[in-house]
């Protein structure tokens, strides 16, 4: 694809990742690069290692072998404390569901990363409110996740992922539980915001229509990156 576009040094790069869960090997020598501000779709059948790849890239799990480099730092060698900090400042995460705390309101959920960073509650809520506004769920700010529709909850989750102004957003099947209209709204909101703010997005999906929102696609098969076109 368009390898010549954008900056030459990747923001986030994984090389030859191997990761086993028990006896099954989820990743088997996968390499992938994410450039600054790029929206990259990772597709593949279920069980092809998509989620494990995301977990490795986001510093949620350490690969058994191989390296993950973020902005010149080796993520696979960083201590857990620093990884956790990185995840809440430089990265944003959106899952299929479950990333919102069920007992907190949408507004408090979106404000949580700021609270963790030591921002005062009032200011955190104001800034989170602006993000909810951008995603069209300001009116649902005082609702708890269980009281919102799936699409609204996912948009609140996007607000939470983006509230700290991260460099990379990791989205693991963000529309997996949504109907096509809600899915379109979530994806449009995500890609518009990411493009405007120059945030890179690593998007895991098995849905080609969702993958089409990305600039580029990486296809996984059996834990490794499959060629997309005729081998050169």
């Amino acid at each position: 694809m368009s390898n010549t576009e954008g900056s030459t040094v990747p923001l986030l790069a994984a090389r030859d990742l191997v990761k086993a869960h028990g006896r099954t090997e989820a990743l088997h020598g996968a390499s992938v690069e994410l450039r600054e501000g790029e929206i990259l779709a990772v597709t593949g059948a279920s069980g092809s290692g998509k989620s494990t790849l995301l977990h490795c890239l986001a510093g949620i799990v350490r690969p058994d072998t191989g390296s993950v480099t973020y902005a010149g730092e080796r993520l696979d060698r960083l201590p857990e404390k620093r990884l956790s900090e990185l995840r809440r400042t430089e990265f944003g995460v959106v899952f299929q569901f479950g990333q919102l705390i069920p007992e907190l309101t949408a507004l408090d959920n979106a404000a949580l990363p700021l609270l963790l960073a030591g921002v005062r509650r009032q200011e955190a809520r104001e800034r989170a409110g602006e993000w909810l506004e951008r995603f069209g769920v300001r009116g649902q700010g005082e609702l708890r996740p269980g009281e919102m529709s799936g699409g609204q909850a996912q948009r609140a989750a996007l607000a939470r992922a983006l509230v700290t102004g991260p460099k990379v957003v990791f989205a693991d099947e963000p529309t997996g539980a949504l109907d096509s209209l809600a899915s379109e709204q979530v994806m449009t909101a995500l890609t518009h915001t990411a493009r405007e703010s120059g945030t890179a997005v690593l998007l895991i999906t098995h849905d080609a229509q969702v993958a089409a929102y990305a600039d580029r696609e990486v296809r996984l098969a059996d834990g490794t990156v499959a060629p997309l076109e005729v081998a050169a």
Partner: peptide, 14 residues
């Protein structure tokens, strides 16, 4: 594979 890539490229355009 090539056909798939072409389809995907068109889908991204659309």
């Amino acid at each position: 594979r090539a056909q798939r890539a072409a389809h995907m490229a068109r889908m991204r355009e659309l």
